[in-house]
Amino acid sequence: MSQDDDNNAYWSANVRLILISLVIWAVVSFGFGIVLRPLLSGITIGGTDLGFWFAQQGSILVFLVLIFFYAWRMNKLDREFGVEEE
């Protein structure tokens, strides 16, 4: 495989990872926290429902996990494709 093909494969792997991460990002905040909150209203937590928890705590915790997961996965991908910094 030429270097160009390699780079393209690296980029599409990256874009795929970004898309997956952004779906999770949107589901926990805009989804569970706002639009889908009525669906979660049956699950109570501390005097309110799970949607409220996602809006004020849960989404932030998921964001944290997402960023570290992405950084770890990408740094690994860099090495697999041999595009890491010297």
């Binding site: 991460s21 905040s29 926290g33 809006a55 989404s59 932030i60 964001f63 997402l66």
Partner: peptide, 8 residues
């Protein structure tokens, strides 16, 4: 959510 989600 807004001021933390932006970091993602």
């Amino acid at each position: 959510m807004g001021w933390t989600g932006g970091y993602v």
